[in-house]
Nucleic acid binder design. Structure first.
Lengths: 131, 131
DNA sequence: GAAATTTGTATGTTTGTACTATACAAATAG
DNA sequence: CTATTTGTATAGTACAAACATACAAATTTC
């Protein structure tokens, strides 16, 4: 994460800002771009970068801490943990497919071509298969 | 849609119920399972099925009407329109890829295996390519 | 044609929560 | 031991979701 935090906040979105932040960081974590031991920026620093209140960032950090991704300590900061994925539930998989369908539908409704959408889907799938 | 409205509402989700309903119906529309001329159930009927207030369903219908999917008229009901997709913006495509990445990351974090996730992604991609 | 019924709509209220402001607490550094 | 840097707690404001209730319009029924 270092500093080029490149988290895009969409103020027009109905998704809460702290959730957007948590989602973005989680993506970095899952992708391995944030390794165990890494240190996230202090809540005030990231908040300044993003133009939000530091408590909003803190809420995102706490969300990820609850999921087992982070260890939060005063003065030390937010440290990435080695986290083992839980066993998948059937519900988690159903949620994924449902949201995937709805997200794709929204994209098509917004004019994204089926071919383009398919390309993006396949790109992510390929990345998953390659490890 | 007829009656087996198969809309799953997740009361634990942070997504508003009316949005969940709109998302689900939009997916049906984009997939062509709801053709122009089709009639959606009255707001009170669907609301009863889903266990929510009819105004909540009405808000979902209005959301879709604003997007050009539905024509709403008193006494006649909600009629599916023939809608042409708008021209895609770069923002729409970026939003899609970003959300796609975050959604997949969440699934992996919840224990869904990369292979399984990839399979679902490819399945939707294939459906898009085949038309 | 009048009345009843069936539809979506409008208005007001409550409740939850996102976000912020500000103050606090703890841990490290000097 | 003091100062500073971190996360945390508390309180306030604003907004919006969901509901209850009442309304309006269009069709059906008699």
């Amino acid at each position: 994460m270092s500093d080029t935090s490149i988290i895009q906040i969409d103020t027009a979105s109905s998704v809460a800002i702290y959730e957007q932040i948590a989602n973005a960081i989680r993506a970095h974590l899952v992708a391995g771009r944030l390794q165990p031991g890494a240190l996230l920026p202090p809540v005030r620093e990231l908040a300044l970068n993003l133009g939000v209140h530091h408590n909003t960032v803190a809420e995102a950090y706490r969300t990820l801490a609850r999921e087992g991704w982070l260890d939060l300590r005063r003065k030390r900061g937010a440290v990435v943990l080695a986290r083992e994925a839980p066993h998948a539930t059937a519900a988690a998989e159903r949620r994924f497919t449902r949201h995937l369908g709805e997200l794709t539908a929204k994209a098509l409704a917004d004019g994204v071509s089926p071919a383009t959408a398919a390309r993006h889907l396949e790109a992510i799938a390929a990345r998953l298969r390659n490890g």
